[in-house]
Simulated scan of single mutants.
Amino acid sequence: MEDISLISNLYRDLIDFKSRFTATHTSGVSECAVVLSELFGMAELDVKSMRIAGNFHDIGKLIIPNSILEKPEKLTVEEYGVIRCHTYYTYNTIYSIGGLQRIAEWAAYHHEKLDGSGYPFHCKAEEIGTGSRIITVADIFTAISEDRPYRKGMDKDAIHKILKSQTDKKLLDKRIVELLFDNYETISNQVKIEQAKALEFYEKRFLTIVDEIAQ
């Protein structure tokens, strides 16, 4: 588990640093998922597994072209289809490592919905475990609170409106969303701390190495 954790940290940075617009995303999702799992009362080993799953959740994006990831305009139907494939590749990549089926599901099901309308596998509620439900909420929260090429990050009220709308439609686990907002300041601050560390590493070390190689 410790070795896998170290490897997941490496891939977390590789995934995030693929695009300047996602340089802190995985760090944020992973930290949010860990804090939520602790507050939910998950066992220590499960919390460690949650961090690994959070680090790996977007590993499938390594095959997505930056021209799509960084596109400031609305994606075409074909481009959106390419983006959606990343969860399928996330699952297959992690599942290929023996003994990591649960982590593969937690990581790859972050776009599944409780009514079966999500992707890539269109899982129903009974097929989506607590870990996957936590990472789903962590991913949405982190994504809409971040600045992206096409919009500014949303504030607490806007985030609450979106997540509540999805719980009202029975798409997300209401317990997890309520846990997030019952502890919003704590979770938000922890996520910002981890993202600040990732951004500092990206700007001071990763970009420097890239510039040196380019020269």
Rank of each mutant, 00 (worst) to 15 (best):
A23L: 07
S27I: 05
G28W: 11
G28Y: 02
V29T: 07
S30M: 03
S30E: 11
S30G: 09
E31G: 02
A33I: 02
L39F: 14
F40I: 04
A43M: 14
E44W: 08
S49V: 00
R51M: 14
G54A: 13
G54W: 14
N55Q: 05
D58Q: 10
G60M: 01
L62I: 09
I63Q: 08
I63W: 10
P65F: 08
L69M: 09
L69N: 00
E70W: 12
E73R: 01
E79V: 07
Y80L: 11
G81M: 10
R84A: 14
T87E: 11
T87K: 09
Y88A: 07
T90C: 14
Y91I: 06
Y91L: 10
Y91H: 04
Y91W: 03
N92H: 13
Y95H: 15
I97E: 02
L100I: 10
I103V: 14
A104R: 10
W106F: 09
A108L: 03
A108P: 00
K113M: 12
L114P: 11
D115Q: 05
S117L: 15
S117G: 15
K124W: 04
K124I: 13
A125R: 02
E127P: 01
I128K: 03
T130C: 14
T130Q: 07
T130S: 10
S132D: 12
S132Q: 11
I134W: 01
I134M: 07
V137T: 06
V137I: 15
V137W: 04
A138R: 14
A138K: 07
A138G: 15
D139H: 15
A143N: 08
A143C: 12
D147G: 14
D147P: 11
D147K: 13
R148Y: 01
P149F: 05
P149G: 07
G153D: 03
D155T: 01
K161L: 00
L163I: 03
K164G: 01
K164N: 11
Q166F: 14
T167K: 02
